[in-house]
């Protein structure tokens, strides 16, 4: 029963997210609204960690399986990407390297500057 009540709380935030997405004129996915709301609810103690943790771990654990279906639709887009396959792959490679370097370097620079310790 623990999972059932936890799942209900998570579905409550899903409903809130869907509602906000329909009410607000911003182009933001309902899952992002739900994520931010659940995060705030946890921060302000409206929802306790133990009230969502087990079902949440289950849902995030099965998430990878849910990506198979959207990924399969790549066959429908194959004609569009085929002529530009090489530039697309190079772009993905280059941008991954650069994003890795910039994000890590900025954090490291600030860590050293601030003299922050990790204890």
């Amino acid at each position: 029963m623990k999972y059932l009540s936890q799942f209900c709380i998570i579905l409550g935030f899903t409903l809130l997210g869907e509602t906000l997405q329909r009410l607000l004129p911003l182009p933001i996915p309902s899952s992002v609204y739900g994520l931010v709301l659940l995060f705030l609810a946890l921060c302000f103690g409206i929802v306790k960690l133990e009230q969502v943790k087990a079902a949440g771990a289950f849902l995030t654990g099965i998430m990878s399986v849910l990506f198979v279906s959207p990924a399969v639709s790549i066959v429908s887009n194959w004609e569009l990407i085929r002529p530009q396959l090489l530039p697309i792959c190079l772009l993905i490679l280059a941008s991954t390297v650069i994003t890795f370097g910039i994000s890590g370097s900025v954090t490291q620079l600030l860590q050293k500057k601030g003299g922050a310790s990790h204890d």
Partner: peptide, 25 residues
């Protein structure tokens, strides 16, 4: 195939929302 997967695809939204839990921790 994707129609058949629709029976569980909707779980992606609640699963994404649950990313708030590790983020909070």
């Amino acid at each position: 195939y994707q129609l058949g997967m629709g029976s569980i695809s909707w779980l992606l939204t609640p699963a994404t929302i649950c990313l708030a839990i590790p983020m909070y921790e």
